[in-house]
Amino acid sequence: MSKHHFKEYSPHHPDVITSMEFERILSATGPTGGELKRPSDGTKPKTIAMISCVGSRDERYHRYCSKVCCMYMLKHARILKEKYPDIKIFLFFIDVRTAGKDFEEFYVYTKELGAKIIRGGRVSAVDVKPDGKLRVRGFDVDLCSPVEVSVDLVVLATAIEPPDGVEELGSMFTATCGREGFLREVHTKLYPVETQARGVFIAGCVQGPKDIPESIAQARAAAAATAALVIPGKIRFEAVISEVDRDKCSSCGVCVPLCPYTAIRIVEYKGKEKAYIEPALCAGCGVCASACPSRAITFHGFTTEQIMAQIDALTEA
């Protein structure tokens, strides 16, 4: 997210930057060659405040947790403290979420290095003082009182957002997006990389905010799932799918736009255009079979005859 959404944090000030920009400043290949300089005047800041959950866990923007911010804020603090022990760092958190292997140790170590962690409410405001310093106002639950610090540089850990156009991308292969705009998996626990579109798998932040180990684990799962489909050289169809009797098909094309899986297309058969259902794509909903005016589509497992027979049996006096 861009910092300009957050009017309360003085986004117009050049020394209020996002974590992404700060990452570049810290990088040896970045614009400052790895030297710590603040954007306004190129001097080295003596005090830095970092603010978490900017746009995340916030009803006005995104309700979800961006998941990686707590850890990279600690990482930034750690790099700074190791390189420049005299810098004062204030980390403003709502909660510190460092769940994961070795993550808690990282948190403890960063605290031991001397980074000041302020847990509590959301930072209410960042404003510019007459002397040019930035004033950060927050709340500290450990002190049970509001706190105020004056700093030279403010780093905002802004939310991870789904990229523009992900909805269009998804609709190209009939995968759907969830409420938050990320592509949706079939099942959170049992099918975490599968999408509604058969044969299309997702991995990484397109499915939701996640860190590098998780993205890699998911990508490997997606690769394995893809390989499992491709390597045998053949695909096992579901038994419960629809099939067109092309001799009966009148080529009206009613079924084609109805299919939610784009499994139906019109192909040539005996010199005429007829509907054809791709068995590998058909998920077996039966929408086409109930719409076909020529009754040319047989839905195996739930044929019209079978259902009618059930109804007949149940209505027998």
Binding site: V287, F299, G301, T304, I307, D312, L314, T315
Partner: peptide, 22 residues
């Protein structure tokens, strides 16, 4: 009567049931 999806329900099913005396 179980069907995979409500989209599978043909109006004929309902009509047939009513005609048969449901």
């Amino acid at each position: 009567v179980r069907v995979p999806c409500s989209g599978r329900v043909e109006p004929e099913f309902i009509a047939e049931a009513l005609m048969r005396g449901a």
